[in-house]
Design a protein around this nucleic acid. Structure first.
Lengths: 240, 240
DNA sequence: CGCTGTAAATTGATATACTAGTATCCACAT
DNA sequence: ATGTGGATACTAGTATATCAATTTACAGCG
């Protein structure tokens, strides 16, 4: 292999000044999204064997885009690929969950502080709208919709703070926590508690009290840590 | 496309209880590493056009592993792939650099605090060894080796804290900062300053003073922010 | 009955072939 | 001279074929 830093590689002005990434949705993207959802929702439980060939047939496509999707999932830690052996939906790495919570506290503590500093009236309206929807969904018992709005709340704070990149990191970190949480039994009043905690965070942001906002966020993130020990005894196959 | 969550997907116990990922180095891995280094070192400057076919020929392989490597680089934000049009080495997103520094402060502040809490004598010896090597490399003027040891110092702190996952995040975040920094002119005494700041961090960890350690780390991370405005005028093509 | 070695089967990794979308460039009209 | 339309060349996306490594199952031996 010779160096790829070859002088014959020339600059390509045409592609250079392109407005933004206007990537159309490719087959591989669609498959990735589908598998991602199936794994996150536990329709594909941890430990389940996957086969490129089989998935390709199910989707009616060739193995190439399937492979591409699996490689991306592998980087996100959602599947484990064993060369020449097989691919499985990754078990939830219990050791990584406490670390993921630490990351969330560090990063979301920062975003909520910044959001508290600069939140506008319009920003607050947006948060209020989310909380209102969450309250309704909690009453209806729509856990799936509730979870979406929960995600929206945290994303909105990151956006208000002006840190879209941090949200991207958080999303990848949240995955394993969310998978574990899906396994917990629906605790009565849990959703109501979450709404209440969100409201406390909201109030601190509205008051532009950065320290209180961080404290409220840290408390919120501590409250939703899944009981790994209990889960481990109930679903021993799902963890490692 | 039908659902991939098909009951016919069966559990595969054999692959389940595998000790760890013992992936051998694949062709795609090798190409990824090479391109990664070439981009980070600016041998492949931002904006340079890449062609799967051309790279494949240079490496003497097919397009498949090259494509796999480019997809991974694309996820890390190091190349931009425009379907059916071309692939270019991504320009350094100037707007992302301040955010990257924020992430580093939040995450490394946490790791250094934790490291200060629990660092053992052996851990300190490891940090001291790195600092000693850095001092020597600074005198020799070996910027490349110095940079490696700089990375080792920050990684060691994350490992002492017991947060290997956080280091993985930091590595991907650091990339854009490092690319920008490579463009700065070699400032006299910069390496000596870095060594001095590292020593302050080291002392705070040794004293088990978590707050001082965080403060020293925050200061250190602020000191090495590249002057984006200046770079932008000198290398307008490299940023966006 | 248990162990071991070997062969068949299955898997992911790579190579090659083909498709479809994009940019370029030149003929042509204005 | 300049702007426009379309043929053309080139790109990445996808499909198919081949390769090599690993597992698994079974035959044969102890």
């Amino acid at each position: 292999m010779q160096s790829a830093a070859d002088p014959a590689f020339t600059d390509f002005p045409a592609l250079a000044e392109r407005p933004a990434k206007i990537r159309r949705v490719t087959t591989a993207d669609a498959i990735f999204d589908r598998l991602y959802q199936d794994i996150l929702s536990l329709r594909m439980p941890p430990g389940m064997a996957l086969q490129e060939k089989r998935i390709a047939e199910d989707f009616g496509v060739s193995r190439t885009p399937v492979r591409e999707a699996l490689l991306r999932l592998s980087e996100g830690g959602l599947v484990d690929i064993y060369p020449q052996a097989g691919t499985v939906v990754s078990r939830v790495p219990v050791s990584a969950i406490p670390e993921a919570v630490v990351v969330r506290k560090a990063l979301e503590g920062t975003t909520v502080e910044q959001a508290a500093e600069i939140a506008s009236a319009g920003d607050m309206a947006r948060l209020d709208a989310i909380i209102t929807r969450q309250r309704a969904l909690a009453i209806l018992g729509d856990t799936s919709g509730f979870h979406e709005e929960d995600e929206a709340f945290h994303e909105a704070i990151a956006q208000i703070a002006g840190y879209p990149g941090i949200w991207a990191i958080l999303k990848s970190v949240k995955v394993q926590i969310d998978r574990a949480r899906r396994l917990t039994l629906p605790v009565l009043g849990r959703m109501e508690n979450v709404v209440r905690e969100h409201a406390v965070i909201r109030d601190a942001i509205a008051a532009h009290d950065a320290q209180a906002a961080r404290a409220a966020m840290t408390h919120h993130l501590s409250a939703v840590i899944p009981d790994v020990a209990e889960l481990r005894t109930r679903f021993p196959d799902y963890f490692c």
